[in-house]
Nucleic acid binder design. Structure first.
Lengths: 238, 238
DNA sequence: TTGACTTATACGCATGATGCTTATAAGCAT
DNA sequence: ATGCTTATAAGCATCATGCGTATAAGTCAA
C-alpha cells in the first residue's frame, strides 16, 4: 500500500456560509449578499468567507457573523457541509454551512452599513420536513437568483429549523425578553409554514415547563392584553 | 476592503471519517482501525481518508467505504464536520464525518482482509439524546484509546442514530430482508440503550404502515415462531 | 400422544396528549 | 355603558402509549 504524506495532496478551499434568518411580517427571511466581480456576479449569495488556517470552523462562522453581518455574539449552529466538486466554478471550494435565527432588529446595522446586503423572504415549495431547495423573493414576490448551491443550503436550513422547533428553544431567539403566547405562536407558524391550533399550542407550551409567567401584560394593543412570559433557558449541546 | 483571490490562502486538508456501526450481541459496535506511524500510533481511529481534489464528499466517503471497509454500496449519511485547529497534530485537517448502520456480516470481509481493523463495542455514559463522547471497548470490556477527536465523533453518531431511529427506516438496515418484530425491537433497544414495552412497540410499528406481513414464520426457534415481516422502503432525502 | 414450556399475538384498561368547540374575562373605543 | 377584539379557561372526543393479562402456537421431553 503506497502512502504519501497528507501534505502532498492538492487541497480544496474551505469556506463557511451563514444562513441568518428571521421572521418578518409572518414570513421567514434570510440575509443575502449581492455578488460582484469574479463569479456568479449579480446573483445573491449567503454571507460567507474562507476559513483561516488556524481558525476553527465555529470561529470562522463567528468572524463572518461579526464582519459581514455585524451581529457578533449570536448563536450559530452547524448545518451541513456542501462539497460537490463543481459547486464553485472558480475552483474546489467546500462550504460548511451554519445557520442562526435572530430578531429582525439585529439585521438593521448590517443592512444600513452595507449596500450589497438585503433581507429577502424565503419560501419553500414543500410542506413539513419533506426537504428540497428554497426560493428567495424580493419585496414584490419576484424571484431572486441564488448563487452557487445556496438554494439547497437555504432549503436545508428551513428543514432543519422546522425539525428543531419543537424540542429546542430556537423560536425564542426571535422574541424579546418578554413576549406573549400569541407572538410565540406566530413565530412557530411562520417557521412551519402552517397554522396551529391555539388552545393546543397554549397547553403544550405551558406544560413544557420552559415558560415563566411574569404576571405582567402587554400594553397598547387595542384589545385585551395578553400576559407576558419569559423563556427559561437550558443548556444545549451540539 | 482589500480582497485576495481565494487561491492565495493557506488551505487546510479535508478528510472524511466513517462511523460504520452495527449491533452485535445486543450492543452497538463500530469499525475501528489501529493507527501506526506518524501520529496517534497505537490508538484506534475511525476509517477515513483525504478528499480528492475532484471528488465530492459523498464520493470520498464511498471510496473509503469500499477501499478501507470493503463495503461498497452501503448507504452512508453525513453527520457533522469537525474542524478544531489542533485536532490533528500533523497539521490542519478538517474532517467531514459520515455514518452508516450495517448488518454484522458486512464487516466480515474487512476484518479478515486487514489485520489492523476491529469491530469494537461502543458505550456511552449518557441516556437518551443528551449527547457527549463515546467509549470504545475491547472484548473484555477494557477501554480502547481513541485517536484525535474520534470519541466525540462516535458519540455524536450515537446521538444522531437515536434521534433518527423513530422516523427513519435506519433500523431496518441492520436486519435481513425478512425479520420478526422481536428482532426489530432488539435492534431498537440496542441503539437506544434502553428496553421497550413489547405490546406498545408492536402496535406502533404495525400502525406505522412501513411493515409488510409475509404470512411466513421463522424456523428453528425452540418456541413458537413469530411471523416474518418485510420493510416497505420509502425514498429519503438528506 | 400428551403435557409442560416458551414466546407470539390479541385484548382491555388507564393515562396523557391533542384537536376542537364553547364559555367567560378583560381591556379598548365609542 | 355597550360593543368590539382577543385572552384565557373548561369540556369533550379521539388517539397514542404503558402495562397487565389472556389466549394461541409452536418446540421438546417423557
Amino acid at each position: 500500500m503506497s502512502r504519501r504524506a497528507f501534505q502532498d495532496y492538492a487541497k480544496p478551499s474551505v469556506a463557511v456560509d451563514l444562513v441568518l434568518m428571521t421572521v418578518r411580517a409572518g414570513r421567514l427571511a434570510a440575509l443575502l449578499q449581492r455578488r460582484e466581480g469574479e463569479a456568479e456576479a449579480g446573483k445573491w449569495a449567503l454571507p460567507g468567507g474562507f476559513v483561516g488556517i488556524d481558525e476553527s470552523l465555529d470561529g470562522a462562522a463567528a468572524r463572518v457573523l461579526a464582519e459581514k453581518a455585524r451581529m457578533a455574539g449570536a448563536w450559530v449552529e452547524q448545518l451541513y457541509t456542501f462539497g460537490a466538486p463543481a459547486r464553485d466554478r472558480r475552483g474546489r471550494v467546500i462550504s460548511v454551512a451554519y445557520f442562526a435565527l435572530l430578531p429582525e432588529e439585529r439585521f438593521a446595522d448590517a443592512l444600513s452599513a452595507a449596500g450589497d446586503l438585503m433581507l429577502a423572504d424565503v419560501a419553500v415549495d414543500w410542506a413539513g420536513q419533506t426537504g428540497g431547495p428554497a426560493r428567495a423573493l424580493d419585496g414584490g414576490g419576484g424571484r431572486l437568483p441564488l448563487a452557487f448551491d445556496h438554494a439547497d443550503i437555504l432549503g436545508l436550513a428551513v428543514k432543519r429549523l422546522r425539525g428543531k422547533l419543537d424540542y429546542s428553544g430556537i423560536a425564542f431567539a426571535l422574541l424579546p425578553e418578554l413576549f406573549t403566547l400569541r407572538e410565540l405562536q406566530q413565530v412557530h407558524e411562520a417557521i412551519l409554514g402552517a397554522t396551529l391550533n391555539k388552545p393546543a399550542f397554549r397547553r403544550r407550551l405551558l406544560a413544557g415547563g420552559r415558560l415563566e409567567a411574569t404576571g405582567r401584560r402587554e400594553a397598547g394593543t387595542g384589545f385585551r392584553p395578553a400576559e407576558l412570559f419569559r423563556h427559561i433557558r437550558l443548556e444545549e449541546r451540539i
